[in-house]
Amino acid sequence: MSQFKVFVTRRLPVDFTALEQIATVEVWQERQPPPYEVLLEQVKQVDGLLCLLTDPIDRPLIEAATTLKVISQMAVGYDNIDILAATARKILVGHTPGVLTDATADLTWALIMAAARRVVEGDRFTRSGQWTTWEPDLLLGPNITGATLGILGLGRIGQAVAQRARGFAMRVIYHSRHRCPPDLEQSLGIEYSSFAHLLQVSDFITIHTPLSEDTHHLFSDAQFEQMKSSAILINTARGAIVDPDALYRALSRGQIARAALDVTEPEPIPMESPLLTLDNLIITPHIGSASVQTRRKMAEMAIANLIAGLNNQVLPNCVNPAVYSWEQGTGDGLQGSSTTF
């Protein structure tokens, strides 16, 4: 008989053989996320929860989870989970960092190139029957080679984006709350910049900072007013870092040239959003990590975290290791982690 019960909030691209050796596993089979009411009922009766960014794991839900030992999220970010509430209940929280760096950096570059060279507009133009001849001024866009790339947030993904920029002979500047060591700047060929200077001089700006109180709507009217009218904004981080109303105003008024988003606020973007009426905006459905290899590895890591938590072992990738201090009678268990950008 299985020792534990586990609820998985979505079908995953792996089998659950290893997990099923120790737990009864119930997987939500619908395409849409389970309703909050379903999550609430499930957590009352399970030992482990494997969830996604689309699942709101808030304080009331955590406080109702009287038997829950571990929450394992198949994502790097975890702003959908009330970490303080989980830590107070001594519930371990795992995530899947590192594995999606290259996939997300690759998509960032796909969006940079698609926006600059107006690939999506060109596809629509062709399919609508408007391509009748070669025209000297048709769908012109800026050069990428030799342009200035501004990177906001120099974590793993920001660094991977900078590495790829070297192949385009770009000037790369970055802003982060903490400046990186000089040897890393030299190896990546990047320059530290203030946020204001980055806004003013960059031809392309790409966002790779976590979402926090400090970065919520970090890009709004004042920031768009500082950017070049020819600038292109890319966001593969979190949707709420960019104020969608301000972005619409900036794009529709020509304050910036174009933008490409893999994340929106809210997600999915409502079909009545005015952003969907703009030709100078590309929106993809949060597919930054959507390579076969990356999604499989993320699922495997999430399962490994879950198994470790159920077996009272150290999670390979733990968000709140303070729980271990609490269990050993040391520390207050509620240390926060600083957000950098």
Results as ranks from 00 to 15, higher is better:
201 V>Y: 04
190 I>K: 04
187 S>M: 11
208 H>R: 03
194 S>I: 07
196 A>L: 14
183 D>C: 01
209 T>G: 15
199 L>G: 12
191 E>N: 07
186 Q>W: 07
185 E>G: 10
206 T>Y: 02
207 I>R: 04
208 H>K: 00
187 S>H: 09
208 H>L: 03
206 T>M: 00
183 D>T: 12
203 D>F: 02
186 Q>F: 05
192 Y>V: 11
207 I>P: 10
213 E>G: 13
187 S>V: 07
200 Q>S: 09
209 T>S: 15
184 L>G: 02
192 Y>K: 06
201 V>G: 01
197 H>E: 15
201 V>W: 00
201 V>S: 06
201 V>K: 05
205 I>N: 05
202 S>P: 02
203 D>L: 04
189 G>Q: 12
201 V>T: 08
207 I>N: 10
196 A>D: 15
202 S>D: 07
205 I>Y: 01
212 S>F: 11
183 D>F: 12
192 Y>D: 09
200 Q>H: 10
190 I>Y: 01
202 S>L: 07
183 D>R: 10
182 P>I: 08
187 S>C: 05
212 S>E: 03
206 T>H: 02
187 S>Q: 14
213 E>D: 14
181 P>I: 13
185 E>R: 06
185 E>P: 10
193 S>I: 08
197 H>V: 07
205 I>S: 07
181 P>Y: 08
195 F>I: 12
207 I>Y: 02
205 I>Q: 00
191 E>K: 03
180 C>V: 15
189 G>W: 10
181 P>D: 10
211 L>Q: 02
199 L>W: 09
194 S>N: 06
206 T>W: 01
184 L>D: 05
195 F>G: 05
213 E>W: 10
189 G>M: 09
204 F>R: 00
209 T>K: 11
186 Q>C: 11
188 L>M: 02
184 L>V: 13
204 F>T: 00
194 S>Y: 04
183 D>Q: 12
185 E>K: 09
193 S>Q: 08
